[in-house]
Each structure stands twice: as C-alpha cells, then as structure tokens.
C-alpha cells in the first residue's frame, strides 16, 4: 500500500486559512519544519490570503482608530521569555515549535509499555489529544487500531510498520479502523508527535488490560 507522507491539499488550505484546531495545526507546522515542498504550498496558500486581503472592499474605521493605535505603540508588550525546557540528549533536535510547548522541566515521559513512553502536550484542545510518543530503539509499540483519526509526525529517528518505513518529517494520517504496529529502527529511539481523535484500541487478550492507560485526554 502506498502511504502518503504529507498532509493533503485540503488540510493545507484549512491550515493557511487559520481554520484548524491547535493539535492538527501543530502537527502540520511540525511537518512544514522538515518539508520544503509543503512549505512551498503553504506559501502559495498564504499568498492567496494576502491577495484576498488586498482585494477586499475597505471598510472605514472609526474616527479615533489611528490615534488609539498610535497610543498603544510605545507600550511595552508584556514579554514572555522563550521557554528553554531542560532536554535530554535525544530530545535536543525537536523542532523549536514543539520545544516551546514543553513544560519548563522538559519532557516528562510516562510509562505505557516497556518500549513506549508518552508525554501529553497542553494546547487548549477539546477534540484531539496531542502527545509525544517515544519508542525505544528497536522497540515495538503495541498493535493498535484507531477509533478516530490519528495524525503522526516523525520528529526524530524512524519507525516502520506493515505499510512502510517512516523518517523524520513524515506525516501520516490513520483513519478509523486502521490497525498497525509501529517498530522503531534499531539504531536509535524514535520520537513522534501524534494528534489522536478518539481512544486507540489495543488488540490482543492481555493488551485489553492496558487500554485504560491509553485513554485519550484532549487538553
């Protein structure tokens, strides 16, 4: 099966138009960080936004608008120091955008299985859970099926499943009903960003016991 490793045009249009929720938005931004081709498309679609702006019929502002804005210019913007989370050696190459979403103390990995760790990211989501997953070198994540859509972006390292091998920057969309078992490459751990819509289901008799650990928490 040929798997696309890029967001489709529909998603890129929604992204450039500012229509997507935070989790998918961050997933696409992370992919753009790696993908020259999709950056070009995003640039085209943002240009279209610029053209829409240029060709809009202007609407007059209230009389005091300019003065009001000028009065704000010298006010100092409440500055937010860029976050500099404490990172482990194998997390240092995460995209800046993702680092900015991490808590000060760095990625706090939680145990899911001996080969798999999770760290949830807070982005003000009410539909998707956004999380980092780390599969240790050569490790296998459990077989799992999807009840909702799941987007995965490889941020570091690579992994494979029955359909192919995925490298840094690859953007994968899993649909409800898809089942797969990701395995990290033997030469290093693999960190992925994933946005999951509904609880994923582990498959197999004992794995069912683990299902509560995999419950989805949009936040």
């Amino acid at each position: 099966m040929q798997v696309s490793k890029h967001p489709d045009n529909e998603m890129l249009v929604d992204y450039a138009a500012g229509a997507l929720g935070p989790a998918i938005c961050v997933s696409i931004s992370s992919h753009l960080n790696f993908c020259y081709e999709c950056r070009g498309k995003n640039s085209e679609l943002s240009n279209l936004g610029g053209s829409f702006l240029e060709t809009t019929t202007p609407a007059e502002l209230s009389g005091g608008a300019l003065n009001n804005v000028l009065a704000h210019l010298d006010q100092v913007e409440p500055s937010v120091a860029p976050r500099q989370p404490v990172l482990q050696e194998d997390e240092a190459r995460l995209p800046e955008l993702v680092k900015n979403l991490l808590p000060e103390h760095g990625v706090k990995w939680r145990f899911l299985t001996p080969a798999l760790r999770i760290s949830r990211l807070v982005v003000g989501e009410d539909r998707y859970e956004l999380a980092l997953h780390k599969i240790k070198a050569g490790g296998k994540a459990p077989d799992h099926g999807h009840n909702g859509m799941e987007i995965t972006v490889v941020l570091q390292g690579s992994f494979s499943d029955g359909d192919g091998v995925y490298h840094e920057g690859d953007f994968l969309v899993r649909h409800p009903g898809d089942v797969h078992r990701p395995t990290a490459s033997a030469n290093g751990s693999c960190i992925c960003l994933s946005a999951s819509e509904a609880p994923i289901k582990l498959i197999g008799p004992i794995k069912r016991l683990l299902n509560p650990l995999f419950s989805i928490t949009p936040q």
Binding site: G18, P22, C25, V26, S29, L32, N33, Y36, R39, G40, N42, S43, E44, N47, E96, L97, N100, L101, V122, V123, G124
Partner: peptide, 22 residues
C-alpha cells in the same frame, strides 16, 4: 492558554519560498 503564534510555523527558521512564479 496557547496563542496561535505558538502553533504556526516559526517564520524565521526556513528558507525563502517566494518565487517569481508565485
């Protein structure tokens, strides 16, 4: 809690994209 600027591609990290075609 989170601003849109933090969710979009940082503008200064990537190579130029404006082409004559565009």
């Amino acid at each position: 809690d989170v601003h849109a600027d933090d969710l979009y591609e940082p503008r200064d990290e990537n190579p130029s994209q404006v082409s004559l075609v565009q």
